[in-house]
Design a protein around this nucleic acid. Structure first.
Lengths: 116, 116
DNA sequence: CAAGAATGTCGTATGTTTACGTCATACTTC
DNA sequence: GAAGTATGACGTAAACATACGACATTCTTG
């Protein structure tokens, strides 16, 4: 009974952590930025611009794909990866809501018993 | 030479992934939300509201503390944990900048060679 | 100062992620 | 259809994350 006690947390918390996990590796951040900056993307090109092997990049792409954050359309011999902008907009608002909570806390003001 | 080839990614990408990693577990998301919602927090109380043992919660708190996202002031026998709102605001703007990129991509429009 | 209470630290078992080489598959082109 | 090319799938080793019980530490209180 070790690891991942997912039940016990709200679906919202799990969803946010899933999204965060995708961004928890610089390679995936870089991949998303690359896809956002280009008008056409091909898997091989992505690996060429990262300090990782093609195999590893493909694995990271799979993780992004698993959450449907990117889409890959096969075009003959190459694959055109692109961002699913609707889902990213959704993720954006989830994070925005979370950060709004975290930055507007009323705790630890001057009237608080603790000294921080 | 496995794992974490951190060099090769920009400092910005590494910073964003570090922040994302902290939120990549529902327990830490829940902890931050708890801290944000209360005006006074004590470590024991936090564990009481989560489906995790006190030890595990303490470990998650350490990870938040390692990035200076929370602060814990010892007040006698108890500890008052609270959010470092300045850092959270900083994190907020980093994520906002990233999502702005991800949601405004011009790729895969109607004029694009790929069909997606 | 002894007893109790609130937390952090350590050790450890288990699950997960990362990274990459090698192989299999699918498409183009001659 | 044979040769070449672009990708994904599989297998595997090492690093890391998660969870928790047991112990140590520190403070209060009588």
């Amino acid at each position: 009974m070790t690891y991942a006690k997912l039940s016990g947390f709200t679906e919202e918390q799990q969803q946010l952590s899933r999204l965060a996990k995708v961004l928890a590796h610089p390679a995936r951040v870089a991949i998303v930025q690359l896809l956002a900056s280009k008008t056409t993307c091909i898997s091989g090109d992505i690996a060429a611009e990262l300090p990782l092997s093609r195999t590893t990049v493909s694995q990271h792409l799979q993780e992004l794909k698993a959450l449907d954050l990117i889409r890959g359309d096969i075009d003959g011999l190459t694959v055109c990866y692109c961002l699913n902008t609707e889902l990213w907009a959704q993720a954006q608002s989830m994070f925005a809501a979370f950060f709004a909570q975290a930055t507007t806390t009323t705790a630890c003001g001057p009237a608080d018993p603790c000294g921080c």
